[in-house]
Design a protein around this nucleic acid. Structure first.
Length: 551
RNA sequence: UGACCCAUGGUGUAACGGUAGCACUACAGAUUUUGGUUCUGUCUGUUAAGGUUCGAAUCCUUAUGGGUCAACCA
């Protein structure tokens, strides 16, 4: 027997396995993914989704989808729908466990009464400014609110007035009574409820007091019996408070565990800034293929399997990290290379006349995907007039350039070797046409010419091709660390989108379908855009091929 | 002048007191009818100083560096 591959566990898996060994919660594992419906899911969320659902999957547990909808001011149903669609597309299923923090508003309210009754919460009439001023700073203690020692009866009465809508927004809050001198700012009598006369997308006008994150989140976890509540590092300082509520309410002890969020080079993860890109129309919307949102990845042709692999490949740890884009690209290319059907597409056409070709149209056979023999072969037309890529010809070639130039030969993929005899320029000096001769005995697969050429280039037949639009995407930002810049405008990449309207594809590509990936040979991976273009075909570049020929 | 967390090649992540490994990147070579793919090889690492120990990336102390916290956001 060969030795089995060692399984590497991340620190969360180690905690879970320890809990299972100790029979904690009878070995039950239950996680949750808690998005706030105030924006679209991005690749950072994908890491969290894969972690939470993945953990449940490997340990025979369950994962709830719970919308953390405690702030009606910023949240909307539009986001709820997109989030559900994106999680499904990523490949995960929460079955019937679709919950909302707002489902628990009544329960949370009763918990609050319980804390008031036990003298652990009080109503504060201070203004936001006063509260902030009395909270102190991290390096020195705060001071108690003058309203801190109200009687239980008074607190109950006042809180009821808040609930009943008798108090103006901002005039009163409910606070936990903990310790204004705590070195942890979150323990300095944190706010539990604030008054907001904003209708909620689910509860409508039923409530005008809304629980804050700190008060709602842990209790929602507890209500759902979540065993491992996984969140990002910035909530580390909230954990004592998370535990304080659970202990003082004496409810199910969910455990919060923090891990380092995903950071990716050239990518912004801040929902606020992504929203800004959308609002200022710096991109085409949340699903603009340059965005890091899941809907954008879908539109750009990134396979969900690749995203899942990436999410686990980056690892789970507590160390701050910035993943290199090459890591992401490597994984996406691996997936696409295996499954993408090859086709020839000339993005920037240059006409070639094969002057000695007089056999009309000839049909040549070519593999659909050399990586996958099962993908079969197809026939492509070849005739006297074809197109090649502008940059596959250089009038004065550089030393390491081994494509076409005057007097030089290349092979046309799956066809013949041609030699460039002449070129035609327009008045601007741009090369507009090549006159070449082909070598009849060099036909692909039955080459008896004995000629050796350094390069094989792609091409399409002029009369057996279609003209389409092709969109080339590059990084949206010119800096690898866009988050560290104050304004996004200064780092927007002006060439992040290049629209080519005259691309020539093999005629068969008229039948291209959404959801499939194609490799435009030597040019990259592309997919049909899922937007509405009045019947016109538009292709998005998912990713370039790795390019060892640097320009 | 606080609390909490983190520190392993360029990047990310393993090694759970006993040979610092893997992946990506970069570079070099081989193969190739995609300058793709594939294959082979090379370079580069335990933040520092003490301590414990036969033995420390791992445990302890201190220092240094980085992150988070002062919304009625999540």
């Amino acid at each position: 027997m060969s030795e089995s591959k060692e399984i590497v566990r991340n620190f969360i898996e180690e905690i879970i396995e320890e809990d299972i060994r100790n029979n904690k919660h009878q070995g039950r594992i239950h996680t949750r993914f808690p998005p706030e419906p105030n924006g679209y899911l991005h690749i950072g969320h994908a890491k969290s989704i894969c972690l939470n659902f993945g953990l449940a999957n490997t340990y025979g547990g369950k994962t709830n989808l719970r919308f953390d909808d405690t702030n009606p001011v910023t949240e909307d149903v539009e986001y709820v729908e997109s989030i559900k669609q994106d999680i499904r597309w990523l490949g995960f299923d929460w079955e019937d466990r679709e919950y909302y923090a707002s489902d628990y508003f009544q329960q949370l309210y009763e918990f609050a009464i319980q804390l008031i009754k036990s003298g652990k919460a009080y109503v504060d009439d201070s203004s936001a400014e006063e509260i902030s001023a009395r909270r102190g700073v991290p390096t020195s203690p705060g001071e108690n609110s003058p309203f801190r020692n109200r009687s239980v009866e008074e607190n109950l009465e006042l809180f009821e007035e808040m609930r009943a809508g008798k108090v103006k927004e901002g005039a009163r809050v409910l606070r936990a009574k903990i310790d204004m001198a705590s070195p942890n700012m979150h323990m300095r009598d944190p706010i539990m409820y604030r008054i907001l006369f904003t209708p909620h997308h689910r509860t409508g006008n039923k409530w005008c007091i809304y629980p804050t994150y700190d008060y709602a989140h842990g209790q929602s976890d507890s209500i759902e019996g979540i065993t491992h509540s996984i969140c990002t590092l910035e909530f580390e300082n909230h954990r004592p408070l998370y535990n304080w509520f659970i202990e003082n309410l004496d409810i199910f002890p969910s455990r919060q565990i923090e891990f380092a969020r995903l950071n990716l080079e050239y990518t912004l993860m801040s929902k606020r800034k992504l929203l800004q890109l959308v609002n200022e129309k710096l991109v085409d919307g949340w699903d603009d293929p340059r965005m890091p949102t899941l809907s954008a990845f879908r539109r750009r042709g990134i396979p969900p399997e690749a995203l899942r692999e990436f999410a686990t490949a980056v690892g789970i740890a507590k160390r701050e990290n910035i993943i290199e884009l090459s890591r992401f690209e490597n994984i996406v290319r691996n997936h696409l290379n295996k499954k993408a059907i090859r086709t020839m597409a000339v993005l920037d056409p240059l006409k070639v006349i094969v002057t000695n070709y007089d056999r009309g149209v000839e049909w040549l056979e070519v593999e659909n995907n050399p990586e996958d023999p099962a993908s079969g072969k197809r026939k492509i037309a070849f005739s006297r007039e074809i197109y090649i890529e502008q940059d596959d010809f250089m009038e004065i070639p550089s030393d390491n350039y081994y494509r076409l130039s005057p007097g030089k030969m290349v092979r046309l993929k799956a066809a013949y070797i041609i030699r460039c005899d002449q070129f035609v320029k327009d008045q601007n000096g741009k090369v507009t046409e090549l006159h070449c001769t082909y070598v009849p005995e060099s036909r692909s697969g039955q080459d008896t010419s004995g000629l050796k050429v350094k390069s094989v280039i792609h091409w399409v037949d002029a009369s057996h091709s279609i003209t389409t639009e092709v969109r080339l995407y590059e990084q949206l930002f010119t800096k690898p660390d866009p988050a560290s810049f104050e304004t996004i405008h200064e780092i927007i990449n002006p060439e992040s989108l290049i629209i080519l309207s005259d691309a020539r594809l093999e005629k068969d590509m008229a039948n291209a379908a959404i959801g499939f990936s194609y490799q435009f040979m030597r040019k990259g991976y592309f997919c049909l855009d899922n937007g509405n273009h009045d019947g016109k075909l538009v292709f998005n570049r998912t990713m370039t091929l790795k390019d060892s020929f640097s320009k």
